[in-house]
Amino acid sequence: MLSRILVPMDDSEHAEHALEYALDNHPDAEITVLHVVGVPSMMMGDAVGLSLEDDINEAAAERATPVFERARKRADERDREIDTVVGIGHPARNIIDRADDYDAIILGSHGEDWTRATHRFLVGNVAETVSKRASVPVTIVR
């Protein structure tokens, strides 16, 4: 039985499906939703924007708020509670670095920018990278 599950979420529908799957199939597990901000891009957009903030952690938390609100709504619909945590930087690296603190990772098959060639080139497929490198079992949900 899984007691602690990490569910990385971005703005994608796939990520919401992953959270719903975790909530529905693991009713006794503690679920933590991770949102990573400051993703590298060709123009360094989000990463540069964060670095210009006076308080990077506060800015990251603010950017994660909409994702966490949707996650809490999904949990509330199932009469469940979730924990939330914000990561800064590369999504796959953030997920993999936290893996040892959980029994499993459940994530969506594609993120919000999965069709953009530049995103796939620079960041790679997060789900694929996590499934290959994580130290705990990984479930990928469509």
Score class of each variant (00 low, 15 high):
127 A>Q: 02
99 A>G: 06
113 D>W: 04
76 D>I: 04
47 A>E: 13
111 G>Y: 04
71 A>Y: 11
50 L>W: 00
62 E>V: 10
97 D>T: 01
22 A>E: 01
105 I>S: 06
39 V>C: 04
140 I>Y: 05
117 A>H: 11
106 I>M: 01
17 H>N: 14
9 M>P: 14
64 A>V: 07
94 N>D: 03
27 P>G: 14
106 I>Q: 02
59 A>L: 05
105 I>H: 08
18 A>W: 00
138 V>S: 01
93 R>S: 04
135 S>Q: 06
83 D>K: 10
111 G>K: 06
90 H>V: 12
89 G>Y: 00
100 D>M: 05
18 A>G: 00
25 N>K: 02
27 P>D: 12
142 R>S: 14
2 L>T: 15
106 I>G: 02
109 S>V: 15
80 R>I: 06
49 G>Q: 04
51 S>G: 08
133 R>T: 12
105 I>G: 01
6 L>G: 05
29 A>P: 06
70 R>E: 08
138 V>Q: 05
112 E>C: 09
74 R>F: 13
30 E>N: 13
101 D>G: 00
72 R>M: 14
6 L>N: 04
104 A>I: 05
50 L>Q: 03
53 E>A: 13
127 A>M: 01
9 M>E: 15
68 F>Y: 08
67 V>M: 01
47 A>L: 07
46 D>A: 02
1 M>R: 12
96 I>R: 00
137 P>N: 01
80 R>W: 07
34 L>A: 03
54 D>N: 15
21 Y>F: 08
61 A>Y: 11
37 V>G: 05
93 R>V: 02
22 A>H: 00
25 N>E: 11
34 L>N: 06
37 V>N: 05
12 S>W: 11
87 G>T: 04
77 E>F: 08
